[in-house]
Design a protein around this nucleic acid. Structure first.
Lengths: 214, 214
DNA sequence: TTAATAATTAATCAAATGATTAAATATATT
DNA sequence: AATATATTTAATCATTTGATTAATTATTAA
């Protein structure tokens, strides 16, 4: 009876528990450094169950990776493909949503970039962010702004790199930046929080620059 | 006789060969995914020699890490502590020097950030970039420019994050960016090369923004 | 040249780790 | 309740991998 209640309480199925644990451990340590025993322990289950449900470490990893990438890009591609918002609004919403996402999932950037390093071709075909970005409403609006002379002559690829850089870099460099600036977790998060407002300001400043090579 | 000539030709000592190989393999795969056998093969030596010269994988890794970090930061701290150059000049020189460095050592950013993730406290005490940055001539000149009203009210920490982000991020995200933009190695490098001129322009634009929270 | 030392190799060890198995327990079906 | 099926566990396996050893070769010193 009590056992039942407890089981009801921590609701999730074994399969889900393992997947969640795998997500945490893989995100934190990467594929190579993560041991299946770490994942089993994190999930509070017997090691054999991992293979019972997912066959192998690699299969489990692939699930986590696909899950991570699609969740991650889905959430932001929504914003840049919203036909209702203006270009300027998208900049603010994108920065704000992206930073919020990273504040709760701060391991993801290093995880993605370090795993892609080990396996670029296989991982990259799992996702189609190509279209999501380069055929986005956001890109179209950028081009319109260019033609209307509202922003300086510049390359969309550079612009996107800059935008992403200003948003994502603090999370990638977080341990280093925390250490060199002697800030604790809360102070650091507060600073990053400020960037939800600041990044759009800086991006607007960058957009005024006429930087097209002639 | 011939054997001697050959030996003279690939000059480096066994110890040096191992260290160079370790550098390459660790930078590319990270500590956990790098096998001592990979390093031995890359160096063209017998596996046992690795332990003969360096005792353990971990000791060898620590050497490589210290070497990487100190070389890396030394090269840039020179620029930001040069008393002869102006603030504006430092921005250009820093961007240019840093990007050149990364063009030849493009694995380093992901290597550093992913290893720090696995071991923040130990690794970070190995270097003293704290002083190099926050007591730099560059920082002093930034403050002077602030007081003289030459740049908008803003935080040096944000500014440095932005500066580093615009320089380093393309190298971190390179495989992803190459894939989504469908660019080859040469095209990508050419674009990054452009940034030696562009990043200073963008940074100057950012510096005009008045972004101090009130 | 000879002896001593250093460098190198092939073989092997020991621990870590992903995976499997067979038995035990829980759950569902009849 | 009885049977069948699914889930879970402890024990074990097999491979990988960092490290060592003992023998061999090369180099240096006497």
């Amino acid at each position: 009876m009590i056992a039942q209640k407890v089981k009801q309480a921590d609701d999730t199925s074994t399969e889900e528990k393992i997947k969640n644990a795998a997500r945490i451990v893989f995100h934190k340590k990467g594929f190579a450094a993560a041991r299946t025993r770490d994942i089993a322990e994190e999930a509070g289950i017997n090691l054999a169950l991992l293979n019972y449900y997912f066959r192998s470490k690699e299969k489990l990893f692939n699930l986590v990776m696909i899950d991570t990438l699609s969740n991650f890009f889905e959430s932001v591609s929504e914003v840049i493909n919203d036909p209702e918002t203006t270009f300027e609004e998208k900049i603010s919403l994108f920065a704000s949503r992206y930073i919020d996402l990273l504040l709760t999932e701060s391991d993801i950037p290093v995880f993605i970039f370090s795993e892609i390093r080990n396996n670029p071709e296989e991982l990259l075909q799992k996702i189609d962010i190509r279209n999501a970005i380069f055929n986005s409403v956001f890109n179209r609006q950028f081009n319109e702004a260019l033609i209307e002379g509202k922003i300086g002559q510049q390359d969309f690829f550079h612009f996107m790199m800059n935008f992403l850089a200003l948003i994502v870099f603090p999370f990638i460099a977080k341990p280093l930046l925390k250490a060199v600036s002697d800030k604790n977790e809360d102070q650091f998060n507060k600073i990053v929080e400020e960037r939800k407002k600041l990044v759009p300001l800086w991006i607007q400043a960058i957009l005024t620059v006429n930087s097209k090579a002639k």
